[in-house]
């Protein structure tokens, strides 16, 4: 158990470091590359929580899809990757207040103790359960999200094609 804990701390430190580079990095491509490492660290944490399916999907969708599209967009945008471009948001103060507030809330919750809630049942395989749940109990939200994404894609195509 202690080795699991040690692995958790290593992974958590890695993920936080990568996320800090994403937010604080001056170079936007480096930030995007660090985002990939942050996502991989998250996936590793999911594996530690026995959520293998979620971990694989995290890597497949976020690293293999979204971040690649992000890098693609960055490379197609002229001057955005030049060192002189401003990449830090102007609302540093506001986000600092929000971040510190969240940190205080989390520390308070951790000190007070989180109420005991039953852990998820330990399943030998998560993928079949997720599949069944998505297509039976949660089929309506699943379809609603699909339609939302479809509408988003159609909107993006209309915006991209001028005529």
């Amino acid at each position: 158990m202690t080795i699991n804990l040690a692995i958790f701390y290593v992974l958590a430190a890695f993920t936080v470091w990568a996320a800090a580079v994403v937010v604080l990095g001056k170079n936007i491509v480096r930030a995007a590359v660090a985002l990939i490492f942050a996502f991989c660290g998250m996936a590793a944490l999911y594996v530690l929580l026995d959520a293998e399916f979620l971990a694989a999907v995290q890597v497949l969708i976020y690293v293999g899809g979204i971040t690649i599209l992000l890098l693609f967009a960055i490379m197609l945008t002229s001057r955005i990757s030049s060192p002189t471009a401003r990449v830090i948001n102007d609302q540093v103060l506001l986000s600092a207040v929000a971040a510190v507030g969240l940190l205080v809330a989390l520390i308070y919750a951790a000190i007070r103790g989180i109420p005991e809630f039953p852990g998820p049942p330990r399943l030998p395989e998560t993928a079949p359960f997720i599949g069944r749940a998505l297509l039976t109990t949660y089929v309506l939200p699943f379809e609603a999200v699909s339609i939302l994404l479809l509408a988003g894609m159609v909107g993006a195509i209309i915006l991209a094609r001028k005529e």
């Binding site: 293998e52 694989a56 999907v57 890597v59 497949l60 293999g64 971040t67 693609f72 490379m75 030998p124």
Partner: peptide
């Protein structure tokens, strides 16, 4: 022999492209 072996392979091999983009840009 992972339960999600195939998904794992597909997911991990998508990382190759990340490396290619990093090489190309840098």
């Amino acid at each position: 022999d992972l339960n999600i072996g195939l998904l794992y392979m597909v997911a991990i091999s998508s990382l190759t492209v990340v490396g290619i983009i990093m090489a190309g840009w840098s």
